[in-house]
Design a protein around this nucleic acid. Structure first.
Length: 295
DNA sequence: TAACGGTTTGTGATTACTTCA
DNA sequence: GATGAAGTAATCACAAACCGT
């Protein structure tokens, strides 16, 4: 994780436990790729139906062609002719160059929302008319407002989306995409946190398991010794440990008790460290949100 | 120290698929 | 069961930050 860089994205809704300063997220897919998803589904299928498109959508040459094709086209070019056509339901030969393309835009492309989209688009293209525009990056203010909104509700209803878009001077689709990405990345990060938590749980349970096995061994060894029965305190003096509900031997028990047994009795009621975030020292932090019992 | 090029990270956007009313 | 809206998962592409030379 970069230190000097602002983390506007994912830090707000996540509480990191002690000793867990940062988590590295590498969302970058392998470049050589063809990486199909684990489920074997293909996600690379382009949606254009242009007859001139390369035959194998997954081939490297196809990608190269696509890239070189896109290179001359501004990805963030705001809807001018092509996009307006798309809003009207006309399909583009290359949907990736349009920020309002696809099914979603078709369903959104009506009524007030469309009006706002058009208004926003007009406004921005006026500003950036002429030269090739770089990939859009939201301003700090825009990001901050989106973050605030996300903290309040991580999904938006259409009204909220429109209002937010209007407030930020963005298209509703952009707001929607921002929220989608934000949810996805929050979830991803939470998954990593949960994974880390479970790993620590597992480690602690392994340690505890070893300790208990050792204890069983020791008890078995004592059980085999005849002295064990002779020197045992009468059952009436046994008490129950309130925490672990095992039979405990009072520390002031008869001095005639086998010292090995007494030592065992004194040591076996150590508190069991349950909190995986603090294997050595007690931590005020509990488990990650996702692992807390939900009400 | 500045400049430069390669690498890594963050993020806007798209697409295919799933879920649910 | 069919359909459409809204969501998720996976991925791409690019800008910016980082880093070694």
């Amino acid at each position: 994780m970069m230190v000097g860089k602002e983390d506007l994205g994912l830090s707000l809704s996540l509480s990191f436990p002690q000793n867990h300063h940062s988590l590295q997220l590498n969302l970058r897919p392998s470049l050589a790729n063809s990486c199909s998803s684990p489920s074997g589904l293909t996600h690379q299928k382009p949606s254009w139906n242009d007859a001139s498109a390369p035959s194998d959508p997954n081939s490297e040459s196809f990608r190269a062609e696509t890239r070189s094709f896109l290179r001359g086209i501004d990805v963030n070019r705001l809807p001018s002719t092509v996009d307006c056509e798309e809003e009207a339901g006309v399909s583009s030969p290359n949907s990736t160059i349009s920020s309002v393309s696809g099914k979603r835009s078709e369903r959104e492309g009506n009524g007030d929302e469309l009006e706002i989209e058009r208004a926003c688009s007009r406004g921005i293209s006026d500003e950036e008319d002429g030269d090739t525009r770089k990939k859009l990056r939201l301003s700090k203010d825009q990001s901050a407002i989106l973050e605030e909104s996300f903290k309040e509700h991580n999904t938006l209803n259409p009204k909220q989306k429109l209002a937010l878009a209007k407030q930020l001077g963005l298209r509703p689709r952009q707001v929607e995409v921002w929220f989608q990405n934000r949810r996805a990345r929050t979830k991803l990060k939470q998954t990593e946190v949960d994974c880390e938590f479970l790993k620590r749980c597992c480690e602690n349970l392994t340690v505890e398991n070893r300790r208990l096995q050792k204890e069983v061994h020791e008890l078995r060894a004592l059980k085999l010794s005849p002295q064990f029965y002779m020197q045992m305190t009468p059952p009436t003096t046994l008490t129950m440990c309130p925490s672990c509900e095992r039979v405990a031997v009072p520390l002031n028990a008869s001095s005639t008790v086998d010292p090995r047994f007494r030592q065992l009795a004194q040591t076996h009621h150590r508190p069991i460290q349950i909190n995986p975030w603090a294997p050595a020292t007690p931590s005020p932090h509990g488990p990650p949100d996702a692992l807390r019992p939900r009400s």
